[in-house]
Amino acid sequence: MSNDTPWQDRGIDPDNPYAQPHPTIPLEPMTPQEGYEIHMARVREENAAWTEGSHKSRIKWWLQWCEQEGIDNLNDVTGRDIIRYRDWRRFQNGKNPENVPIARPTLKTAIDTLRVYLRHCAEANGVHPLLPEQIDPPTLSKGDHARDVMLSADRAEDVLEYLRKYEYCSLEHVCVELLWHTGMRMGGVRSIDLDDLHLGETPYIELHHRPESDTPLKNKSNGERPVAISDGVARLLRDWRDTQRRDVEDEYGREPLLTTVHGRISRTTIRNYVYWASRPCLTDDCPHDEDPKTCTANQNKQSAFKCPGSVSPHAIRRGAITHWLDKDWRRDHVSERANVSEKVIEEHYDEREDLRKMEQRRQFLDDI
Rank of each mutant, 00 (worst) to 15 (best):
P29K: 00
W61R: 01
N47S: 12
A48V: 07
S57Y: 05
H22I: 07
Q20F: 04
E67P: 04
R42V: 06
W62V: 13
W88R: 00
Q33Y: 13
N47L: 12
R89M: 01
R44Y: 08
Q68H: 15
H22F: 08
A48W: 00
R84H: 15
W50V: 07
I82S: 09
Q68I: 03
E46Y: 00
P21H: 05
V43S: 05
R80T: 01
K60L: 03
N73D: 01
T31L: 03
G70R: 04
R86C: 04
E37N: 06
Q64F: 07
I12S: 00
Y18G: 12
P14D: 06
M40Y: 03
V77M: 02
E46G: 13
D72E: 13
G79Q: 07
E45W: 07
M30Q: 10
N47P: 14
G35Y: 11
R80I: 02
A41C: 05
R80V: 02
R58C: 09
I71G: 12
R90E: 07
I83F: 08
R42C: 13
Y18P: 00
Q68W: 09
E34V: 03
T24E: 06
N75K: 11
R86L: 03
P26V: 13
I59D: 01
D13Q: 14
E52N: 10
E28D: 13
P26S: 11
P32C: 00
R80K: 15
R80Q: 08
E34A: 09
T78I: 05
N75D: 05
R84G: 11
I83C: 03
R44M: 09
E52M: 14
I38K: 14
Y18S: 14
L27W: 04
N75R: 10
Q68R: 12
E46A: 12
Q68P: 03
E52I: 04
E67W: 10
R89I: 11
R58W: 06
R89S: 07
H55A: 05
R89W: 08
E34G: 08
L27N: 04
A49M: 10
Q68V: 02
R58E: 12
F91Q: 12
M30N: 14
T24H: 14
I83Q: 05
P17L: 13
V77Q: 08
